[in-house]
Design a protein around this nucleic acid. Structure first.
Lengths: 243, 243
DNA sequence: CGGACCATTGACCATAGTCAACCGCCGTGG
DNA sequence: CCACGGCGGTTGACTATGGTCAATGGTCCG
């Protein structure tokens, strides 16, 4: 699948694009960049002049705290634009890295802004994308602040699977989630041993299996219940299968 | 100060507006609504057809978790648009309430979208506002997930004072922050007694005083150090006094 | 075969959550 | 005017969740 189609598919998860919108999006120029595991794409403070669209693999946003530890903020799959905010925010307030081998497309800001000026309706779709992004952050605040580790983890698994499913990346109840338990700990405000124990505990519920970077959903309803997961914050059309 | 001027002042904290932009923003229609302490403006699931601009007082976004407890997500002062996302996200994924007596202006979505279509550059300023909003959420994830309570609280005080200062709401090192300790606990992933102890501990550092909803900065540098506060994520011009 | 990395497990311990009592303030109503 | 109740904040005692440290084991790769 071409990156233009990835991007259009992603925007159409929530917005309606006209033929003219789509035609102009297809004209966006972009150059490919391939990344290895843990490579940084951008660092806090950088001032990029182009936006990344994920084409393959998984990339992550993270903060670095003075102790040197990371706080992961979000994970991104093909079609996502994890640094869309650089269109209007000059300087990066987080870093962006490849979780595993990844492929991204770099699109010049100028080309995107020209598109917005020519077709505000296309701009609104991109805007909506960044607003959903913000809604996901809000949910992450609540997840890490108001739920116990078991719930947090279940909620996180629900969100990742749901988004992978919507992006056609889930196969037979499994999707890739190439994270180590250390990274899960740095995402969910926890520690490696606690995450390990929480995964084992979740495993015993027979709701979900997570091993070797593969997430397998065994009982969606149960997982949703454990994680208090309500997908309305993702602002996507709800697929029948995941209701 | 009229609400149009509040809004323009806020946008000009980070964006450059042309005279034409300003002229059109001034033409936005709006009707006033006065709220009492703890009144809800919007609830999760609502589908409003207008946006709120805060004119006076303080309003808060919050989630409600199944136990019934609240997780506060952000606090908003005059000039803020705490539900700007409703322009493009149909349904509210959080609730919005007045922290104390507050006055808001309700502006129809249609009027705002028409403005964007006529002047994309004005739209970009609003967009940037929502992107800064998202950056603040990112920081909140890190604050509540990776810092201990003392640091969290100091960081939160820094952010609130900084934003109040930029909005000309700080007088002689003090600003209003009309929150109870219970609300602070529901913001900072903590409990009332822990917050009480943390405030007392902070008080002893002589960096800050918080009592009766008044925040008083006694040693900005020290508070910034305790809270590991770096205002770049707010994406505003840094005032000399707070450097 | 050795080393790196990842996951699991146990022991110990500290932070902070819960529960509860108490205090001061304020507004209300008798 | 005073008594009361509610709310907000402080404090203490107890406890438990989960963090730190450390040892072990498995797997993969050089």
């Amino acid at each position: 699948m071409t990156w233009h189609n990835q991007l259009i598919r992603k925007l159409e998860e929530h917005s309606i694009l006209s033929k003219a919108d789509i035609a102009l999006i297809r004209k966006l120029p972009g150059k490919t960049r391939v990344l290895g595991r843990n490579d940084d794409i951008l660092r806090q403070g950088d001032k990029p002049r182009e936006c990344a669209v994920v084409l393959d693999g998984m990339v992550a946003r993270y903060h670095t705290v003075p102790s040197g530890k990371r706080q992961y903020l979000s994970f991104h799959i093909p079609g996502d634009m994890p640094d869309a905010q650089t269109l209007f925010l000059e300087s990066m307030d987080f870093s962006l890295c490849a979780v595993q081998r990844a492929e991204i497309i770099l699109v010049p800001h100028t080309a995107i802004c020209d598109l917005f000026k020519e077709r505000p309706s296309a701009g609104f779709a991109f805007w909506k994308e960044t607003l959903i992004d913000a809604a996901i952050f809000r949910e992450a605040i609540t997840n890490n602040s108001s739920r116990d580790l078991q719930m947090r983890l279940a909620h996180f698994f629900c969100e990742q699977y749901y988004r992978a499913y919507k992006a056609d990346l889930a196969k037979a109840d499994t999707c890739e989630l190439p994270l180590t338990q250390t990274q899960l700990a740095e995402t969910l405000a926890s520690s490696l041993p606690s995450i390990s124990r929480a995964i084992i505990k979740l495993r015993k519920t027979k709701a979900v299996e997570f091993e070797n970077g593969i997430l397998q959903i065994k009982n969606w309803r149960l997982l949703v219940e454990i994680g208090d997961f309500n997908p309305t914050y993702l602002h996507l059309k709800i697929p029948h299968k995941l209701q």
